[in-house]
């Protein structure tokens, strides 16, 4: 009957929505297609995975990749051990300090990576620390830097996770059943924060694995990010295949977070540029 007006309006709205989605998807996909296409053209006039083969047989690729993986691993472990007990303790015993801890955990937003690394090098190359004089020392500094970069995301994920469980009641229940602090931490708090911790961990992994700014100034070409940069300066097709590999890695980590989070938009805001 007289129904068409609202439904026509809805059609226009849906069309308008699709228009923007298509535009965004094009922006997202075209560079990937172009890169993939380019990565297959290492030989004239044929499509080949040669560039990928060269990367995967490059010892430097595996060396730098596993180095960055190790750095990421340590950064994740340190982040969790640092953030979870702190956030828990703040909620339980020192709620007055919460704004302060929140503020501190947001500081890395204010200090860009390039500024952070500048300060880190200046402070820790001289006495009393002298961390930059040894390999172990530079690795420690890099891990610390990564923990700082990840801090805002890790803290927020953990704090949100703690907000979703009733920390005080759980703790009191555990205490009334005779549990000590260790048991409470490892048998109650950590398991209940599984989702938050895992998504924080994979987000850290995704940002740290190809990280360039901190790595190049602290450890140089030992890390994966600087390695990619080096390849980009000398080898055209291989750099495209590295971009695709790196993209797939990011995709895998983010996909895992998505699985843990079940479609919540929270928790995957980006890290270092």
């Amino acid at each position: 009957m007289k129904a068409p007006a609202p439904s026509a309006r809805r059609h226009v709205q849906t069309l308008w929505s699709w228009l923007w989605i298509v535009l965004g998807v094009l922006y997202f996909v075209v560079p990937l297609i172009a890169t993939f296409d380019f990565s297959l053209r290492a030989k004239k006039d044929v499509l080949t995975f040669l560039a990928y083969g060269r990367i995967f047989t490059d010892a430097a690729f595996w060396r730098t990749f596993s180095f960055s993986l190790q750095m990421a691993f340590f950064a994740i472990v340190v982040s969790i051990l640092l953030v979870v007990p702190t956030a828990y303790w703040i909620r339980l015993k020192l709620p007055r300090l919460r704004p302060m801890v929140e503020f501190v955990s947001m500081l890395p937003f204010v200090v860009p990576a390039i500024v952070l690394v500048f300060g880190l090098i200046r402070v820790f190359s001289g006495p009393p620390f002298r961390l930059t004089n040894t390999f172990a020392g530079t690795n420690v500094l890099l891990v610390a830097g990564y923990v700082v970069l990840a801090l805002p995301y890790t803290y927020r994920a953990v704090d949100t996770g703690l907000g979703a469980i009733d920390v005080r009641t759980l703790t009191e229940a555990a205490q009334s059943l005779g549990a000590g602090w260790g048991t409470i931490m490892f048998k109650i708090i950590f398991p209940n924060l599984r989702v938050a911790i895992l998504s924080g961990a994979f987000l850290t992994l995704a940002t740290v694995i190809g990280e360039y700014t901190l790595a190049t100034f602290i450890v140089g070409n030992k890390a994966f990010g600087p390695y990619m940069s080096l390849i980009g300066q000398n080898r055209t097709y291989e750099s495209s295949s590295l971009a695709i590999i790196s993209f797939l890695l990011t995709w895998a980590f983010m996909g895992l977070i998505q699985i843990f989070n079940r479609g919540r938009a929270e928790g995957h805001l980006a890290g270092a540029r």
Partner: peptide, 12 residues
Amino acid sequence: AANFAGVPLAFA
């Protein structure tokens, strides 16, 4: 995409 930045993005 928000996390796909830095060196590989430049290559792409």
